[in-house]
């Protein structure tokens, strides 16, 4: 492949004619790509003019025709609010913790599941781990409440009986209502809800690894750990990097549904994130300008981080990265 390109470069023809020849050579690939590109242009790019809502005083009644331009006015309004700043900091904290704990979890889980040899058991585990993903956060909240509440909750009951039996003095509190413990509940419930669903991609990628590699490795006498280190992980590398880039890109999405369902007035000072804040101030009226501006801000941060991560990934391994 490389050789062909070099030859063509050396032939001294103009760039355009080379381009034309390359395109002609892969004409069918472009034809194949066309429907997808049309989709993205029509359904994603055509409505993108909506971004100007974030820079204007948009009102649903007067619509796009009568929309005074306010430049960065809405952004300024947003950034100067103390509650927004609080939400921004919480947002970064929560997201960071979620990536730190949540990103490796599906990978570890997939590798463990892949070690199960009994097919029935494997399917059983694979199915059960994705279950929590389908339960809405409001239902999960109901269960957490059943575990944590002080009148009938399972955990306080257990703690109380431990205290009674051993004469210990463990403080019995509602973990959902304490600033000190709420973050732990948030991260644990997140891990529990999302790790299993995350295994789907990794298990598919592991399945795609050529079995001949493992066979050869076993003949060479490589142990499990070595196979893991030299075959499984290198084969998963590009998937891991791609998913990490996407995950970093969505760093500003700290999990609206979860926090909306789980937080309460006692912990809001550490749990309020940009999305919940914007939802709240946008609730009274259809404040599309504000929501758009906040969304743009989040996306821009995401874009910068993605380009950065992608660049680093390319430095480390030129074949990886999304672009």
């Amino acid at each position: 492949m490389v050789k062909q390109r070099d030859l063509r470069n050396a032939s001294g023809r103009g760039y355009l004619s080379k381009l034309a020849r390359d395109i002609r050579m892969d004409f069918l690939l472009y034809v194949m790509l066309l429907p997808g590109i049309i989709y993205f242009v029509v359904f994603k790019y055509a409505p993108m003019y909506g971004i100007i809502i974030g820079f204007s005083d948009y009102n649903i009644v007067s619509g796009f025709s009568d929309m005074p331009w306010v430049g960065f006015g809405i952004f300024e309004d947003l950034f100067t609010k103390a509650a927004f700043q609080r939400a921004f900091i919480n947002n970064i904290k929560i997201s960071f913790l979620k990536i730190l704990w949540g990103f490796p979890m599906p990978i570890i889980l997939s590798i463990l599941i892949n070690e199960v040899k009994n097919l029935f058991y494997k399917k059983f585990v694979q199915t059960t781990v994705i279950l929590p993903h389908f339960i809405s956060w409001f239902v999960i909240y109901g269960m957490l409440y059943a575990l944590c509440n002080l009148s009938t909750g399972a955990i306080p009951e257990i703690l109380k009986s431990i205290n009674a039996a051993f004469g210990t003095d463990i403080e019995v509190v509602n973990y959902l209502a304490q600033k000190e413990t709420f973050m732990t509940v948030l991260i644990l419930s997140y891990l529990w809800q999302s790790s299993g669903y995350g295994t789907i991609v990794y298990l598919a990628a592991i399945t795609g690894i050529d079995q001949q590699l493992y066979e050869a490795a076993m003949i060479d006498g490589a142990g499990k750990m070595r196979q893991l280190w030299h075959i499984t992980l290198p084969s998963l590398r590009s998937t891991i990097i791609t998913l990490l880039i996407f995950r970093v890109g969505s760093i500003m999405n700290a999990g609206f549904d979860q926090i909306f369902a789980l937080s309460n007035s006692l912990v809001i000072s550490i749990a309020d994130i940009i999305d919940t804040y914007v939802y709240r101030i946008g609730m009274e009226e259809a404040k599309f300008s504000l929501a758009t501006a906040a969304g743009l801000f989040k996306s821009l941060i995401g874009l910068v981080l993605v380009l950065g991560t992608n660049w680093i990934a390319k430095k480390v391994d030129p074949d990886s990265g999304i672009m």
Partner: peptide, 20 residues
């Protein structure tokens, strides 16, 4: 419309924290 819900949230935060 600008602050209503946010102010209500502060009221709730205040009440909850003052009680405990």
């Amino acid at each position: 419309t600008e602050y209503g819900t946010q102010l209500r949230e502060i009221e709730k935060e205040a009440l909850a924290n003052l009680i405990v």
